[in-house]
Amino acid sequence: MKKLINQPEQIIDEMLDGIVSASPSSVRRLEDTTVLVRKDAPVDGKVALISGGGSGHEPAHAGYIGKGMLDGAVSGEVFTSPTPDQVLEAIKATDSGSGVLLVIKNYSGDVMNFDMAAELAEAEGIETAQVIVRDDIAVDDPENRRGVAGTIYVHKIAGAKAETGASLEEVQATAQKVIDNARTMGVALSPCIMPTSGEPGFELADDEIELGIGIHGEAGIEKRKQMTADEIAAELVERLLPEVDLADQDEVAVMVNGMGATPEMELHVFNRKVQDLLQEKGVKVYDTIVGNFMTSLEMAGCSLTLLKLDDELKELLDAPSHAAAFKK
């Protein structure tokens, strides 16, 4: 697999500089770290939002930095959680005195590293709060569910909440509400290739797809014979709907997320069936986004996220955002 890179060991460093050089007026890098923050951080009187994790999920997480979403993003090596010292730097650089919310995806590594950073921040007198995203229904045990594309909604909605001047506790509560109401499931048509080893994360035969994948090139829960876009849409919708627990008047937000190498054309074909199915089942769709939001390098496939909305979430979802990867 050919990649548009230089030394694999330099890839994160070079990526971060590349991101900043594209948006020098809105994003800056903390020297000698893998942390990017809003150019104007810390923002006075505002709770700061920090997210992050392993790299390879671009535009997550740095693409979501900007007014209305994140104040900072911490990047680890490819698919490897960043270390506590890096997270701490992000916390220190974005805290305006109003406290910092850490948006953590539910992986052992992310949880532990961010948690250690929170302990270190506490020692320095900075108040932090955490939310742990666990939207991936491919994992049965709700406690053990991974954080995947639903994280984007947490950034967007909690980010908008923070812009209202809400307290750390309030922003945390809103973020938690998003987490409680977001459910995702994904499918891979082909694996991604680790830049360091040049090896695929799993093997798929020419006529196989992988259901219930995470976002780190790890294998999914089930291999299936190749299915059509419509069949995959039906499978995901059917698995997700019981999990979002909709009452009659509830509306949902829909995210069709490409895993990195799926042509946008195919995402639209997939979305068409998703919308048809939701309509058939009487589910009202308030908002839909289609694109690459939380990727796994050059994996082919997609994930589907449903987020149950209430009035607060709708208003915050519609609020402006200046993030490079999520302008609103």
Binding site: G76, E77, T83, P84, Q86, G109, M116
Partner: peptide, 12 residues
Amino acid sequence: VMSKVGGASGPL
């Protein structure tokens, strides 16, 4: 180790 390993094994 804490600042260079990352992932789950780093903190552990």
